[in-house]
Computed example of a mutant assay.
Amino acid sequence: MKALVIGGNGFIGSHVVDALLLSGHKVRVFDRGAELYRSPLVDVDYRLADFSDVSALAEALVGVDSVYHFVSTTVPSTSNLDPISDIKGNLINTVRLLQLMLQNGVSRIVYLSSGGTVYGIPDISPIPEKHPLKPICSYGVVKVAIENYLFMYQSLHGIKPVVLRVSNPYGERQGHSGVQGVVGTFLQKIKNNERIEIWGDGSVVRDFIYVFDLARSCVLAGESEYCGILNVGSGVGNSVRDVLDISMEVSDCTMKPMYKTGRAYDVPSVVLDVSKVRDVLGWQPRIGLKEGVTKTWIWLNSL
């Protein structure tokens, strides 16, 4: 298989590139910039351009068998600030991608959706794929819209989508700007001896997935014939306070955090039911939270 990884120089995409190469696939990366944490790989065909560059994207699709779509121009905490940009940068550009795929005879696409925002405040936990979609931020609304377009194109044009609703990924090569990724943000703050800030009282619960485990699920999804939606997460809930305690333990740090007023868009608890992905792909997570945080801390200190 020859795969085009859109966003392949980013946090998740770079790990999927590694996993694809390890599985013997040929890889082409389409991204607007180079990787931040390592040099280009000799076995990868890199195409650097913006996701909105139609001609460059069309050229990148030539000769590929499948597309892995990991680009997002927003994160949940910033999407509501400019919903119009969220729609233009993500929804419109993804629909354009689908049109270009049709023109180039490419049907298979693996799309990274959000298990943390599309369901909104859940009625049950763990959350199954059949749960009603009730997003409360623009990020989640746009993710749902893209999912709907993918399945519309499946019905009308034969596109073969698999949507992965992913929980909270973390691990090596994740950015540490503080807008996304509580594990990386906490560890970077500890490394820099900076005060850690927590929104609310730290009781918000999330499902954290180590990026190596996520990358394996992406490759398996692309290799399979399955079309549909799959939750991908650890299936285990941990509070932000749990993450802080583990981060303190693995880094041998004792600083006290600063608690701030909670945010309206923070869903109290999101834990995914991952039984379906286990049944469909034979995949299950291998790395627990403490082991994953430890690996991330070791990597961060190697920079």
Rank of each mutant, 00 (worst) to 15 (best):
E291V: 05
L100R: 02
S79G: 09
Q174H: 12
S72V: 12
S113E: 07
A221M: 06
I87K: 03
E291R: 04
R195T: 15
E172T: 08
P285I: 13
I298P: 00
G8V: 07
P169Q: 01
V71C: 06
S14H: 09
D207C: 10
A3T: 11
D43M: 11
S77L: 13
F11C: 07
H69N: 08
H157V: 08
C137V: 14
R108L: 07
K2A: 08
Q103L: 15
R241A: 14
D279T: 14
R286E: 15
S107L: 14
S107F: 12
I190W: 09
G7T: 00
N9K: 04
L220N: 01
G120W: 00
Y68R: 02
N192H: 10
A221Y: 03
V240P: 01
L303W: 04
D242N: 15
L289Q: 05
V5A: 06
Y153R: 06
V243H: 05
Q154M: 15
I127Q: 01
N9A: 09
V118N: 02
R38D: 09
A56L: 10
L220K: 14
Q103K: 15
T94M: 05
K295G: 02
D266V: 14
R206Y: 04
V236S: 01
Y139A: 10
V277R: 02
R165S: 04
P268D: 07
T296M: 04
D213Q: 03
V205F: 00
F70K: 02
C218Y: 01
S107I: 08
G181E: 08
N93D: 10
D252C: 11
G140A: 06
V106H: 06
S66C: 13
V204P: 02
R206K: 12
G10P: 03
V16N: 07
P40W: 05
G288W: 00
L100T: 06
Q99N: 15
G33L: 13
D31C: 06
W199F: 14
